[in-house]
Amino acid sequence: MVFSPSARFRTAFAAGAAVLLTAGLASCAATTDDAATELDGASDVSYAVDENTLVFGVVPDAVDTQTNYQPLMDYLSQETGKTVEYHESTDYAALIEAAIAGKVDVGSFSGFTYLTALNNGAEITPISSIVTVEGEAAGYYSQAIVPADSDITSLDEFAGKKVCFVDPSSTSGYLFPSYNLLEAGVDPVEDVTPVFAGKHDVSVQKVSENRECEVGFAEDSEVTKNPGVKVIAETMVPGAPIVMSDALPAELKTQLTELLGEVTVDDIIAAGIEGADSESFRMVFLATEPVDDAYYDTIRDICVKTEAAQCES
């Protein structure tokens, strides 16, 4: 304990010092002087867990998504040669915090969540967005609904009504509707009686009953289920991006962009992934189309107009 290992200790110390020195030089050169990365060792490159693992975090975007992304994970794992850890959550805050803390390598969350994460200091870049319906763009619709027998035909008639929203943090259930109401000259706080239904299907149901809510908003997938309401207006909500952490090594980022940028379900089946050729996977994944940061400018615009709390950093 005292004598023989001293030599080994000395070499280890020397190696450690060398690493620190290189790290220091590297960070000086890059002028991104982040104390944490310095201590971490090599450079400003880092992984959520380690270099052999990719952490994939997901919050389902549209409400009726039954996330079955396993074939996509397997594909990613096969092509990159890394273990893919897949985590899903129903709470945006958890995923955003994980992204800010650098605990996510790749992720998929709503357009709004992406902006919120950016605003709060997450270093992530969008790659692509998932298309689920043949021939349609990525994304889904926020729809303005009225009871099936109602005479209301436009948003400006919502003034003075009891309006069902989903909840104040919902993209398609509050933020887009608020924006659209403002555009139609109706203040979503002052001019209507807002009712928060909590869930999309509840919002639809309450509107169809025409008792607690006279009109409302919800996502298209829930609206189509209930014949008691009709749609008078709709807005496309930009699809959820697949994002990657900026801290990943450059070559990996390139590889991920190639892999996930424009991939179809057939590509994944061709790669020999088990379970890819199934109805449950096609339901949630048909192809991806590349997106960039500018794609989400509509949401930025909404942030400005509605002064939503989420948009503040």
Partner: peptide, 24 residues
């Protein structure tokens, strides 16, 4: 705890609830 990505059946339960998949 499925609410916060805690793993397990909770995520499925809450997601099924939010997505109105009541049979699930």
């Amino acid at each position: 705890l499925g609410l916060v990505g805690g793993g397990g059946v909770g995520y499925f339960l809450l997601n099924a609830g939010q997505g109105s998949r009541y049979d699930l």
